[in-house]
């Protein structure tokens, strides 16, 4: 049996690179990412500035490293928020059934009826456009998906005979929920959380690109792209590298997500 696929390997390498860059950006970068250098504006990549400089003469590589940190941080917090809220809501809803389930799911479906980033945009209008506004907005926007997946898993697990066996043994509802149901929900939660991490990073950069995310001068990949846009003809690297960073990160997450799904999804397991 192949335990880890080629996809999973590439995905892991890309994600490891992302995390390393983020960690590196925490302590060290080749230059101060905020330091303006009016003598070295819009310089092409060179041995001094590997990825060139931007319109204010700031080092692009340094800003990318610090931007990685912002992406990972926002992604992690958003996913944690959505996973905790969504899992709790899904568990309660799937386990309680009846009118509690009906009410929770009606609200959940209404939230899901807002297309993707739109709900986040609406919430940003309320919370204000900054790092924590984004985390809240995206966290709330993603929770319903997690809730739906967890509820689905709970409902299908409830039909499994080992849940009935637990009932016949005289075990209480809470015990059954945490001993038998939750551990068996880990696989779908992990798979979804992985994709969510990607959605969060993408949405954050899209919002920053729109000017609704982390405000400049703090660097994120999205606002670097937005800032580089007017200079893209003279300084291709300003448009190239931040986007490449986002794309490689997303590719890593997608590949890792596929590998996880193949490994964790019991339906796929049965096929081998």
């Amino acid at each position: 049996m192949k335990n880890f696929t080629f996809n999973g390997l590439i995905g892991s390498i890309l994600i490891a690179a992302l995390l390393l860059s983020a960690a590196l950006g925490l302590f060290w970068s080749p230059y101060d990412p905020m330091k303006l250098g009016f003598t070295a504006r819009l310089e092409a990549p060179s041995s001094a500035h590997w990825l060139g400089t931007d319109e204010f003469g700031r080092d692009v590589l340094s800003r990318l490293l610090v931007g990685a940190r912002a992406s990972v941080w926002i992604g992690t917090l958003t996913v944690t928020f959505a996973t905790v809220c969504g899992t709790l809501i899904g568990l309660v809803s799937g386990y309680a059934r009846g009118w509690i389930d009906a009410v929770i799911m009606a609200v959940n479906n209404a939230l899901l009826a807002f297309p993707g980033i739109l709900l986040a945009l609406g919430l940003l209008a309320v919370f204000g456009a900054n790092q924590y506004g984004i985390i809240f907005a995206l966290g709330i926007a993603y929770s319903p998906s997690m809730a739906r997946v967890v509820r689905g898993a709970v409902l299908s697990l409830r039909e499994r005979e080992f849940i009935e066996a637990s009932k016949v043994m005289g075990n209480g509802e809470l015990y059954t929920m945490f001993r038998h149901i939750l551990p068996n929900c880990v696989a779908p939660i992990t798979v979804l959380a992985t994709s969510m991490f990607g959605w969060a990073i993408l949405s954050e950069s899209a919002l920053s690109f729109l000017g609704l995310g982390v405000p400049p001068p703090a660097p994120t990949w999205g606002n670097m792209l937005a800032a580089g846009r007017p200079f893209i003809e003279q300084a291709v690297w300003l448009g190239l590298f931040p986007g490449l960073a986002i794309a490689l990160t997303l590719l890593g997450i997608n590949l890792l997500g596929d590998a996880l799904r193949d490994k964790l999804d019991p339906r796929m397991r049965g096929l081998k």
Partner: peptide
Amino acid sequence: QMVFQDPYSSLNP
């Protein structure tokens, strides 16, 4: 106590 039909589904994996 009870023994179920499907031994693939009656034991927590």
